[in-house]
């Protein structure tokens, strides 16, 4: 559907049948009481795609990605994650969640567990992986985020940047098919940001499907396939990073970019 901006992909999809999407949002609406927070959101994510979502505060970015693992419930429209339709009376939302990694602005590590235990919790208690195996898994991903030496410390002993990388490793230990990031660097001191972004770039290069709410423009330019701009609960513009930053279509996008750049 964004083939206009990616001619090479368009040729491919014209020949082969379209790749099956991993996430689909169809006319999704959400209200908080009277407040219409998401308005007719349509979004399709194919496996391996990297999408950056940005927009002014209160525009519904967090709400949209939180609907994808049903930390928030939508009220109308359809959300399909890996062939599972999310709805009120569904069984197995926990299964869906265990396949969708989520990284929060405020890390949300479990403070009473060591770093390794934080990473082992999901595999052991949700997937039934034996302890030794879970530990190996934890160490593997802690190495990937470059802090294996912190494994036996507690979250409180780590810097914000280190904690966020642990949070990423904790999600990866579940071997997710998709990762959601909600402003993962905006609670960090400036000198910590690049460490976390590097980890995310590594992840993107390995082919992880990612939806990132972030205002880190360098990251968006480097890894994003698409940038989505939201305002007032709507998707206002969807574009390639190059076009989005250098030649935005919509007036609201231009205005937003002039404020943050």
């Amino acid at each position: 559907m964004n083939s206009v901006h990616k001619p090479d992909v368009a040729v491919e999809t014209a020949v082969k049948p379209a790749v099956k999407p991993i996430v689909e949002l169809k006319d999704v609406n959400k209200w908080y009481d009277d407040f219409h927070c998401l308005k007719d959101i349509n979004l399709t994510v194919t496996p391996g795609e990297r999408i950056v979502i940005c927009g002014p505060s209160g525009s519904g970015k967090s709400t949209m990605i939180r609907c994808i693992n049903r930390l928030e419930a939508h009220q109308s429209g359809e959300i399909i994650v890996d062939d599972v339709v999310l709805h009120e009376h569904m069984q197995g939302i926990d299964k869906v969640r265990s396949e969708v990694g989520m990284v929060f602005q405020s890390f949300n590590l479990f403070p009473h567990m060591t770093i390794a235990e934080n990473c082992m919790a999901g595999p052991m208690w949700v997937q039934g992986v034996p302890k030794g195996e879970a530990r190996r898994l934890a160490m593997k991903y802690l190495e990937q985020v470059r802090i294996p030496e912190q494994a036996d410390k507690y979250p409180g002993q780590l810097s914000g940047g280190q904690q966020q990388r642990v949070a990423i490793a904790r999600s990866l230990c579940m071997k997710p098919k998709l990762m959601l990031f909600d402003e993962p660097t905006s609670a960090l001191d400036p000198e910590m940001v690049s460490g976390v972004l590097d980890t995310m770039i590594d992840l993107a290069k390995e082919g992880m499907t990612m939806l990132c709410v972030t205002h880190e423009m360098g990251f968006a330019r480097e890894v994003a396939d698409r940038v989505i701009f939201m305002a007032d609960g709507e998707i206002v513009e969807e574009n390639t990073p190059g076009e989005f930053f250098d030649n935005p279509r919509e007036a609201r996008t231009q205005q937003f970019l002039s404020q943050i750049l």
């Binding site: 265990s98 929060f104 949300n108 590590l109 999901g122 904790r170 999600s171």
Partner: peptide
């Protein structure tokens, strides 16, 4: 956030 983190890994 503790609830959300736990639930988002499938607890």
């Amino acid at each position: 956030g503790q609830w959300e983190a736990a639930r988002s890994i499938g607890f």
